[in-house]
Design a protein around this nucleic acid. Structure first.
Lengths: 224, 224
DNA sequence: GACATTCTTCAGGAAATCGGCAGGAAGGTC
DNA sequence: GACCTTCCTGCCGATTTCCTGAAGAATGTC
């Protein structure tokens, strides 16, 4: 899952990024309204966490910009004051939810999941496909009943594949979602990561699940 | 366990906080109705202790606010007067229990445990996992039949781990639950605390229970 | 007020992980 | 079947992450 954090206070931003990172998600940070608006409109984020107190252009402006271009983009507001007028204004401008500082990270996480569930985005705790199983809560993976230990990046990659079984995933898309980078074609990071993952989840078993689509990307599916 | 105390009298608030702290729980204090309502609604508390006599907005208002948003939030009322009308009003507004001042701390503690037991939040006072045992009432820990002496923070950390065996606990969550702070990643308090706990409950025994998940956090589980 | 225990920060070192490289294999095209 | 492109795969250096002991600060105890 990709998240955009628009927050000027470095400590808060770092705290949020770390929290999402531990959950296996990827978070980008924008430190002002202009950069935030740009990233929000051009990037593909599952959810945007937006502080209303920002230098240059404030959060209200950013929110309006986002809404005018991406009507269904999930946005959670962070307000410093527990003022009812701010809440009302936020919701009127189209925020999906808001949170009053200071807050605990798990509270933010709960609201993120809440929004995604409302939007029918798949956010279950345990994903199954064929004889493979991944428990996102316990960070564990099984294949044919055996537990498999994965390195962080291997795990993130598999978790992404398991979210879209049967769907073709290009290297560009994988690099974007799992590495948070722009895939330039000069690198074979994705190939290498796929290789490492295959060695652990496919090589020891019959009935491969990870398949290569030449010139396109990879896909997770069963094949007769 | 996280507790919110909404009480304007500093002495009483400090007395309660100290009491809960000694039990290994974490207590936040709000000194007026507005802050109390804010924390109660946005924070994740296992139980809220609410004085009805408050400056600005009183306890009744706070209780109604809580109920309208969190129907199942456990709340215990503190009333100064032993008037039947107050009890009735409190229960009508959805308080789980009430206590008339002055009271002994153990009395409050008993009612807290009572409510949580009713809700199955903490159905047991003694938790077992593998050959480890923790008695939440007597504050005692055993591993392989031997008693282990733990410092307060070590105990709180272990108690938290024992509540979620097999589940991944990120540093952010641990810091939130055990330290009541926002983990910004610049500190390694959690690492060090884990180290000290390991020295006492894992190092002397075969079959480690605390395991590290690189880039994620820690987990309490047996590993073949 | 002195002492003891506990907690946090700091820094050095160890270990796991990651990304790039390069040679080889496989697939596609004419 | 030859040639070219794309992908696979093992290895190594660089980096990140974690562990660990020690010292100073904070807290509680007598």
């Amino acid at each position: 899952m990709k998240i955009l954090i628009i927050e000027d206070e470095p400590k808060t931003a770092a705290f949020l990024k770390k929290g999402f990172s531990e959950e296996g998600d990827i978070a980008d940070i924008a430190v002002n309204g202009v950069d935030g608006q740009h990233l929000a409109v051009t990037g593909n984020y599952d959810v945007i966490v937006l502080d209303v107190m920002l230098p240059q252009r404030d959060g209200w402006w950013v929110l309006q910009e986002i809404r005018s271009r991406r009507a269904d983009q999930p946005v959670i507001l962070l307000t410093a004051l527990d003022a009812v007028s701010q809440r009302v204004r936020g919701l009127q401008l189209g925020a999906d939810d808001y949170l009053v500082k200071p807050f605990a990270f798990s509270e933010l996480l709960a609201r993120v999941h809440n929004i995604l569930r409302r939007r029918n985005v798949r956010s279950e705790d345990v994903l199954h496909y064929a004889d493979m199983e991944i428990d996102l809560l316990r960070h564990k993976v099984w294949r044919a009943g055996e537990a498999i230990g994965l390195a962080p990046q291997e795990y993130r990659l598999l978790a992404y594949l398991m979210r879209f079984p049967g769907e073709v995933l290009t290297r560009t898309r994988i690099a974007e979602q799992v590495w948070d980078m722009n895939f330039d074609g000069d690198s074979n990071v994705v190939d290498v990561a796929i290789r490492r993952l295959r060695r652990k989840v496919d090589d020891p078993y019959s009935g491969k699940l990870i398949h290569t689509l030449r010139g396109v990307g990879y896909v997770l599916e069963t094949r007769g």
